[in-house]
Design a protein around this nucleic acid. Structure first.
Length: 292
DNA sequence: CGATACACCTGTGTGC
DNA sequence: TGCACACAGGTGTATC
């Protein structure tokens, strides 16, 4: 579920309670999410301070004061909530509230990890458990088996027409599949690939290696634009996703094609109707009239 | 190596 | 109402 804009929104929401605040207590209510947690995971978080909370692709990375980085991925249904302690002035509208005497059974279904700092509580909730967390030496993050293979950040300087061109050169897979490949560019998912391809007027089934440099240049710009606009809107809420304070994101109201099958193309003067096709098992939404 | 299929897991909406 | 089935913001792994 969460793509780059949702992950960045969550990061911004939880940074104020984690950065610079000692973790008084951390608890994990099960042994794994997608994979087992590290040995003594909760104990290793307890007493630590997160010096900075950053994002790389769809990962949230908390650099801790013991030389390790706390790596978090929200998978499809992961949510990270800030729950305000009474009187702290932090947090927001979400229904959770810290009980006067916290008990394990005070938490809701699928609340898997709970972290308390002096000021507030962070709850990681994930119904499908495709999310993940681990601890990795900060000095060797590039050596992490999952972080090391990631392509450039789409909002960073390393992502440009030269890089995209080189990454797509010779590829016979569709441009849709190529943009979902996190080695090509990292952070895009199903929503924003569909939206960016519509903006660039590129048909999602086109062979990735067959697209002109000029069109790739436009694609780079549209990818940046749509991500930036979505971050601005607090991400897109379809089912599970919430901002860290429990609020919905708002970008779903501005979708041009995603989840709009059979509705009219939003391009002024385009008579097209949005169609859905399935590529590598996932829905693609596009306008057959204006995407070629 | 590249491209595709399948797997993981739970919740929700749809049609019969 | 109940039930089967499709489908969901991701991505590692197996398979050709």
């Amino acid at each position: 579920m969460p793509e780059l804009p949702e992950v960045e929104t969550v990061r911004r929401g939880i940074a104020p309670i984690l950065e610079g605040n000692r973790i008084e207590r951390a608890r994990a209510f099960r042994a794994d999410l997608r994979w087992p947690f590290p040995e003594r995971f909760a104990e290793r978080l307890t007493g630590r301070t997160v010096l900075s909370l950053r994002r790389r692709s769809k990962y949230i990375l908390g650099e801790m004061d013991d030389g390790h980085t706390w790596r978090m991925h929200l998978g499809m249904s992961g949510r990270s909530f800030v729950v305000a302690a009474r009187g702290s002035g932090l947090g927001g509208s979400f229904v959770h509230e810290i009980p006067a005497s916290p008990r394990v059974d005070a938490f809701g279904p699928h609340d898997h990890v709970v972290v308390d700092t002096g000021a507030a509580r962070l709850i990681y909730n994930d119904a499908r458990r495709f999310g993940a967390m681990d601890l990795w030496p900060t000095a060797d993050l590039e050596g992490h088996p999952l972080l090391g293979k990631l392509g450039p950040e789409p909002l960073g300087n390393l992502f440009n027409v030269d890089a995209l061109s080189a990454a797509l050169n010779g590829k016979t897979a569709s441009i849709k599949a190529a943009l979902l490949d996190q080695r090509v560019v990292s952070g895009l998912g199903n929503i924003y690939v569909c939206e960016a391809l519509w903006r660039a007027k590129i048909h999602p089934a086109r062979a990735a290696g067959s697209i002109s440099r000029k069109r790739l240049d436009a694609l780079v710009r549209h990818i940046r634009d749509v991500l930036a606009e979505a971050i601005e809107a607090g991400g897109s809420s379809l089912r599970d996703y919430r901002q860290a304070d429990g609020e919905l994101g708002y970008f779903q109201h501005r979708f041009s094609v995603y989840d709009r099958e059979d509705e009219p193309c939003t391009l002024m003067s385009c008579p097209g109707v949005v169609r859905r096709l399935v590529q590598s098992g996932r829905s693609t939404f596009y306008c057959p009239k204006c995407q070629k």
